[in-house]
Nucleic acid binder design. Structure first.
Length: 467
RNA sequence: GGCGACAUAGCCAAGUGGUAAGGCACGAGUCUGCAAAACUCUGAUUCGUCGGUUCAAAUCCGACUGUCGCCUCCA
């Protein structure tokens, strides 16, 4: 039985899809706002999304999964004040918003691909769904949940008694002290923009019933999910930071239009901390996957690292911890290959019980740390057998760590690609070693190291690799 | 100021009533001329502190201390 935690009810519930008959799971993920580089904290959320996908598939479900790409309307403040993030980034970089969107979308796709994250069935840009958003807004106005001001169309939060149910916080009290300029045209301080009347200088704008406008941030997710998944779907995922405003507003929009909570499960990924604190530009600790690569950490080692903690707990990133993840991953790959093509007999019951143990872990609200304990139990099994290798490969359908691969391919240096002086040193060292002149041998090893090469002695002679 | 979360070995961390998973590091050993790598073995009588409930608590309740987050951009 698959159990998932639902933020709205604050409970782990058994997961049963709406379309049980066809075994289809419909889910929605809040995707990136493509105005800047995605960092490793962002990536934690998408790794989780992917693990959830793969656990569902592991359980035999088919997926209809939508992720949006926000390329318009996400303001620099959630109070819908300030500048559009996309346009701000374009202005700062002196490029067009479309160039910005295209470039950061491309980089995002490269990042998720390097992490073995599957692309959802539908990836939808906000700007490709403008008509759907406009009619959504019209619908809300018709139902009396929205009103017009000189700045745009706003959602009337006072019309929805359950507003604030997701964050369970007294939003009124929280906001009263917030440093947000009061818009006197708004009926309630919490009312949020659905459709914004475009100032002249705003680049991305569309003709509509209310003149040239552009959409508010929250409406895109409601419109896109409704279009592709229907009024009510199974799972909605995102980061915990979306709970208080973005997802609260999505629920409000859907309840206004359809009268229903749009998702049966709301799942939220906790934050990644850096050295026990927040990731922030001012501290200079916002890392991207490329920053990790520069330090010899491959993207999949970062994926492994996220498995050391449960997705609903904060995870503390330290260089010591990420390095340990890289070492662990390397050893796991070696342990897996040690089982490959070995013929030792393994009782069927043992394989089945390990298989079940792994399934229980992932089906318990995607408990990856518990699942990894099972993975290691199999990997370290002394009785080497292809049965265990196959089991590990099966687990990797969820893990997506490519544990069935050959190590260090990139590090190996082809002999004839070496420069003459390196070859000469190697030859001298070979002779010294034949003569048991180890002090010369060690000196030559040091000099190779200075030139950026590691030489390792084995039964077959000297192996050289780039540092 | 208001709200919320968390506190388990050097590090990253599972475990939410029945007697402390897993990984890394450290240490010891095997191997090696040495080193590196690999492999084997090893670590908490105890889960921030103090009380309480219970036959039984890391797990429930209370207080305290500490850390972090949100309320402002964020996955």
């Amino acid at each position: 039985m698959l159990k998932l935690y639902d933020t709205l009810t604050r409970k782990k519930k058994e997961f049963i899809p709406i379309d049980k008959k066809n075994n289809i799971v419909r889910m929605y993920t809040c995707g990136p706002t493509v105005y800047n580089f995605a960092h490793i904290g962002n990536m934690r959320a998408y790794i989780f999304m992917d693990n959830l996908r793969k656990v569902l598939k592991y359980n035999g479900y088919k997926l209809e999964h939508v992720m949006n790409i926000t390329d318009v309307g996400h303001m620099t403040s959630d109070a819908d004040e300030g500048e559009d993030k996309m346009e701000k980034s374009a202005r700062l970089q002196n490029r067009s918003v479309y160039e910005i969107a295209q470039e950061y979308t491309k980089l995002f796709m490269e990042d998720i691909s390097s992490l073995n994250i599957q692309i959802p069935e539908y990836v939808q840009k906000a700007t490709d769904n403008i008509p759907e958003m406009e009619s959504y807004v019209k619908g809300l106005v018709d139902k009396g949940f929205a009103y017009e001001t000189s700045k745009g169309i706003y959602y009337d939060t006072s019309k929805l008694s359950s507003y604030g149910e997701l964050s369970k916080a007294n939003l009124e009290e929280q906001r009263s002290g917030a440093r947000v300029e009061v818009d006197i045209e708004k009926k309630n301080p919490l009312d949020f923009a659905l459709w914004i009347k475009s100032p002249k200088e705003h680049i991305m704008k569309w003709d509509s019933k209310w003149g040239e406008c552009y959409p508010g941030w929250h409406i895109e997710c409601s419109a896109i999910s409704k279009k592709f998944l229907g009024d009510v779907f199974d799972i909605h995922t995102g980061g915990v930071d979306h709970i208080p405003i973005h997802h609260e507003n999505e629920i409000a929009q859907a309840k206004g239009l359809t009268g229903k909570n749009p998702a049966n499960f709301w799942m939220h990924v906790e934050f990644l901390l850096i050295n026990s604190g927040k990731m922030s530009k001012s501290l200079g600790n916002v890392y991207t996957l490329k920053d990790l690569t520069k330090k010899g950490i491959e993207p999949l080692a970062y994926r492994y690292f996220t498995y050391t903690s449960h997705y609903r707990n904060k995870l503390n990133f330290t260089w010591e911890a990420i390095n340990s993840a890289q070492i662990s991953l390397n050893r796991l790959i070696d342990a897996c290959s040690a089982h490959k093509n070995e013929k030792n007999n393994v009782p069927k019951e043992i394989v089945e019980s390990l298989d079940k143990k792994f399934l229980n872990a992932i089906n318990d609200d995607i408990n990856m740390p518990a699942a990894m304990a099972v993975v290691w139990e199999v990997a370290k099994e002394k009785n080497k057998s292809n049965d265990y290798y196959n089991l590990l490969k099966k687990f990797d359908k969820v893990l997506s760590l490519n544990i069935d691969r050959v190590q260090d391919v990139n590090k190996k240096v082809v002999e004839n690609e070496l420069s003459e002086d390196i070859k000469e040193i190697l030859e001298m060292r070979k002779i010294a070693r034949q003569n048991k002149d180890f002090s010369t041998s060690d000196k030559l090893r040091d000099s190779l190291k200075e030139k950026g090469y590691n030489v390792v002695d084995s039964k077959n002679g000297q192996n050289i690799e780039k540092v």
